[in-house]
Design a protein around this nucleic acid. Sequence first.
DNA 1: CTGAAAGCGCTAACAA
DNA 2: TTGTTAGCGCTTTCAG
Lengths: 341, 341
Amino acid sequence: MAPTDMKRTLTLRDVSEASGVSEMTVSRVLRNRGDVSDATRDKVLEAARRLGYVPNKIAGALASQRVNLVAVVVPSLSNLVFPEVLSGISEELEDTGLQPVFGVTNYSAEKEEAVLYEMLSWRPSGVIIAGLEHSPHARAMMANSGIPIVEIMDVDGEPIDSVVGISHKRAGLEMARAILKAGYRKIGFLGTKMPDDHRARKRLEGFEAGLAEAGVELADREFYSGGSALLKGREMTEAILKRSPELDFLYYSNDMIGAGGLLFCLDAGIDVPGKLGLAGFNGVDLLEGLPRRLATMDSCRREIGRRAAEIIAGHSHTGLIGGERIELTPTLQLGDTIRRA
Amino acid sequence: MAPTDMKRTLTLRDVSEASGVSEMTVSRVLRNRGDVSDATRDKVLEAARRLGYVPNKIAGALASQRVNLVAVVVPSLSNLVFPEVLSGISEELEDTGLQPVFGVTNYSAEKEEAVLYEMLSWRPSGVIIAGLEHSPHARAMMANSGIPIVEIMDVDGEPIDSVVGISHKRAGLEMARAILKAGYRKIGFLGTKMPDDHRARKRLEGFEAGLAEAGVELADREFYSGGSALLKGREMTEAILKRSPELDFLYYSNDMIGAGGLLFCLDAGIDVPGKLGLAGFNGVDLLEGLPRRLATMDSCRREIGRRAAEIIAGHSHTGLIGGERIELTPTLQLGDTIRRA
DNA sequence: CTGAAAGCGCTAACAA
DNA sequence: TTGTTAGCGCTTTCAG
């Protein structure tokens, strides 16, 4: 192919020439804006289709100062929880003309800053970001961006603008109360190493506060990081029970390690929930296939995604900016691993 | 706040004025391009930081005709498999200056077209897209885009440009051989309803071809759609065994339903792998925590993501375009659910 | 209903 | 090493 044959990407002008209609009118047709006669419209659409024209949003965005993108920043995709949030967002954005763009931080504040900077430089219509904890620089970028910011998952803290989530402190607290009410007293905690995971930390704080109401203290704790959660759950459970055989309840910071623990207990022939109670957190569908239903608390992920997207979509219509605060209430599911009264 | 106080987003010009350096030089500093004296560089960086300037990539992209985005199109995020592919891509792209942008199609060809159109209109540096099956329009858009296209996961078909994946036909075939070699003969298949999932379909085709080599036919089959995979695996296994109690092997189209089947069999006291063998597909980490290791075949997801990203990154350096074909070889893991010789 | 002119904020190419 | 001049491809605005 000679250099002169090089395929140049098509522009409005090409469609204009091919259809004999001015660029301006072609633009109007392609965007369904303003009144255009059916005759010209057909000419234009035919030409555009025939040429295989794909508009250049970069130029469009620059000229119109409008970008139909919503930046979505989450710590991880392997956590199972976040893909569900993203689904909720996609669903809600479906017919708004807005498009989500996902960024992943790997629970690193530094990476979060980088991802935010990158995304904000595309001037999106809004930002949805997990958590309320951000570096000062990240906060400043968002606060100064002039676009709606929705922090999600967690409401325990100071939002920059809007926030949609649940109170993890309260979730921990209520789980503690339910466990105490069922008569358990020697309680152990198993979870991720916390520095990274603020929500798990807050649940633990709330949990300990709940125990304290009854003068109970956490009897033991075990932490992990990395690896297959199910397997880790097994191993940690074995370890903590070996170290503290007197425990009568294990509270896990998420359902996957809880499920691993449950499988271990069943294998080991431990009487669940009679001699040992178990509970996790998140309410993931996955649990449904296990031999028993693990006690858990629904984290309202999908709903959180939907509501956050709704806020952004709303702003993009009205142009108004002003923080909303939406706190959802997780529901406790006792399942088969907490004694019933 | 009076309208005149409205925060206008900052431009290069603002930094230029604040630092007393020309726009052009400011631009150079901010992009680390060309030679700039340390003195001016410091002045510029200081001013940019002080003002909180965030560059406008839209304008930059339009002017330079370069966009550091890679469009990544996958059918789903809840499949567990795709998040891993995405991780591989992100990882590989990390230090290339390229940024992945994810789009989800929900296994719908129509949605795929829409997502592609949307993404191509941002003129990305490349496209990574799952599967080889696309609508004619989608194929045309990609073929005419003038950017590198990498189709991933599957190599059984005609790629548009480059392709990185495994042969699902061969994967099914080899699993069939391994099962036959272990002495199983009454074999059932359990999987998703196929119209949407071409790779599962190809595995089944290969599987049946493998059985046919030994004159064996599939004895029964069971399909599902939607719902918790683990639970579905349980239910389908119960159903197929009730209908065809003579079966001595169950081949699942993915590990999650296979795991559900395994849990069912253990609960039901079925002798696995003695009386009944089981196998899945994907090689997900998750399996590690189960009471037994399910036989499976690694689908090389992370590696696929990495290699695909590598191709795009390579093109973006060299500017060359030319299809590569990379076929990876999945490894069979017999686990604990296929009899050993 | 249609068209012409003037940028959007940045960078390529060249000049100093 | 730094600055100047033209656009990138589209949309806004205003005139027909």
